[in-house]
Design a protein around this nucleic acid. Sequence first.
DNA 1: CGCCATTATGTGTATATACACATTTATTGC
DNA 2: GCAATAAATGTGTATATACACATAATGGCG
Lengths: 147, 147
Amino acid sequence: MKHIDKVYPKHPSPCNCMNMRRASRAVTQFYDEVLKPSGLTTAQLALLRHLELAEKATISGLAKTMRIDRTTLNRNMKPLADAGLIAINPGKDSRTREIMLTETGKAAVVSGWALWGEAQESLQEYMGEEDLAKLNQLLAKLEALVP
Amino acid sequence: MKHIDKVYPKHPSPCNCMNMRRASRAVTQFYDEVLKPSGLTTAQLALLRHLELAEKATISGLAKTMRIDRTTLNRNMKPLADAGLIAINPGKDSRTREIMLTETGKAAVVSGWALWGEAQESLQEYMGEEDLAKLNQLLAKLEALVP
DNA sequence: CGCCATTATGTGTATATACACATTTATTGC
DNA sequence: GCAATAAATGTGTATATACACATAATGGCG
């Protein structure tokens, strides 16, 4: 099955980094729009999802898993804690905090999950399975740019 | 010439959006690190570069060209204006502003340009020409997700 | 000319991101 | 056990992002 690749307009900037950033903004806006009814952003849902899988986690541990800066994660948790979706308690090791989903948080994940699936599916349709797989492969390699 | 593709660790999240965001962060950190001696971020250099090509521009016009939100651009200009790299003057149409590089700004672009070239080249070496071309093609398609 | 839609911009608010620095607590080596 | 080190977290500061709302100026039309 062959198809003709649509040609997209060349951007004046040949900067790979800016190309990444523009695309990242676009995809984020796309996902966030679909997730809107849940009241969650994609980044927030991702955080909650990680907590769901981990059951409980420390900040640094979660940051490592999510490959995000520890202090960024710290601040990203704030609105979720304020909304009562996560609980931040002292850990056994007094240096650590134990982060976990609340019941409200679990419900929010369920609600967001379905919407996320729609966005994911839409994107797959838009990009095509093959290109999407290639994309994710390339993204994984780029991600390895930082330790 | 064949080579063995290195396998990168699977991330627990299969979310295309988060994959984009993580990769975007990584690439941004990589470029910003190289650009550090110039005192500019990659986003800032890109803004200055666009101004260099345009000679002068309005905010909305520049935002459209850079495919960034108008209000985001507005705020991104602040530190550059404070540093005296760009000048924001009233346009002929009294609704508009005329944005242009100052002499200092032009010098900053020159300084940043060489570093940017290094980052660009390093990434090309890292990704390989073919994969990098494919990546940029896929990114352009993703960018078209938003109008 | 005056009304109105359009266009350009500014601002309040909120999230996302990360570096540098400080603090607290655990761990390790002697 | 104590001192030095390492680990986990918090915070100040700054940039990046974008939505909602407000203001101001232009342009078209009757």
